[in-house]
Design a protein around this nucleic acid. Structure first.
Lengths: 189, 189
DNA sequence: GAAAAAAAATAAGATATCTTAAGAAATACG
DNA sequence: CGTATTTCTTAAGATATCTTATTTTTTTTC
């Protein structure tokens, strides 16, 4: 688990073993059962979570009472509600385990301290943020230019193993279509 | 112009006048006429641009040959193609002036140097990236949960002055609808 | 200031996607 | 293991949005 994280960090910055130990000491492992939540509706988000195993989803309940999934998080991804975390506002987004999931919690207060003690972590989180943003941009472009059928097809092609892990109705929500229509699209190829 | 930039930076980090001068020396002012481009299809993006006046749009041409606008940039916003810039890949996104526009160009090579010379600039750009990401997240949530009619209405309500500045067909593209449908929606309130 | 070009409006018909409702299949649970 | 709950499928009818084509209005250009 720690090895994964270390490798992950070293993809982006040089960090000594001692520095990593310090970094690691700011992280708290949490184990979540399926359907347990990390962040509830109305709570202010106070931490980021690095997923070491399992799968989380970040979603909200819309006016009509439907769950709308913004994105999923899997192994080696950070997940949080940045808007709530950085602007100190209550979250209407919910972070919940899709399956049994292990995360490392990094409290935002700890992170600010970490930035002081190991300045290069600021670079690390800048890079993470850049990459997260780029992923989102690509996704928007995708959704803008493809029909639902094409979006579904290319998502399944790109993430065949992941598609097996989540219920189809969650996939439909993530892709912005109804489960019924997803079912229809799968049947009529 | 420089004052605007200085104020803007000081919203996020403490920076001395001397440091700001140094920062400023890495920026090159460019003046764009309407329809001039900062980034062409197929080019690798090498810089970020801080808009001091005017308006730019970032868009691509989809399979059907339609322009698809990803977003606009106005005064006091940074604009670039992060995917191309940071991954050194050719851009299929185009950055073009919607009206006469003045920008300050920050080459990526200069920025890397700046990170070394004034480490706190790393913090500044981390924060910019976070805020940019949050804006995008909010937008996705918006587009997921509202009908075209609601999206249009709330965009116009939130940005009445901006709506006057860009042609309607660009607004339609940005909001993900056809110009004809936008026209229809305006007529049938 | 007139001609050309670009942008916006209108409207009819086409299509993608949603809604509703019911039954079938799969999974979780005691 | 059998019942309860959740998830998935199917299909018909409804609706939002697009397409195409034409006309009108506005803006640009010489």
């Amino acid at each position: 688990m720690d090895d994964n994280l270390l490798q992950y960090i070293r993809r982006y910055i040089d960090i000594s073993d001692a520095e990593f130990s310090l970094f690691r000491s700011y992280l708290t492992p949490l184990m979540l059962k399926k359907k347990e939540t990390l962040l509830k509706n109305g709570e202010v988000c106070r931490a980021r979570y690095f997923i070491t195993s399992g799968c989380l989803r970040l979603y909200y309940i819309d006016q009509k009472g439907n769950e709308q999934i913004m994105h999923f998080g899997i192994e080696n991804w950070w997940i949080t509600n940045y808007d709530s975390l950085l602007n100190n506002i209550p979250s209407h987004l919910i972070i919940e385990a899709v399956e049994k999931t292990q995360v490392l919690e990094l409290k935002e207060t700890s992170l600010q301290e970490l930035y002081q003690r190991i300045p290069k972590t600021e670079r690390f989180f800048r890079i993470i943020m850049e990459r997260t943003y780029i992923a989102t941009q690509r996704r928007i472009e995708f959704m803008y230019s493809l029909s639902s059928e094409e979006i579904l097809k290319s998502f399944i092609d790109a993430n065949p193993e992941f598609v097996q892990r989540v219920p189809q109705y969650m996939l439909a929500s993530y892709l912005g279509i109804t489960p019924e229509y997803l079912s229809f699209l799968r049947k009529n190829p």
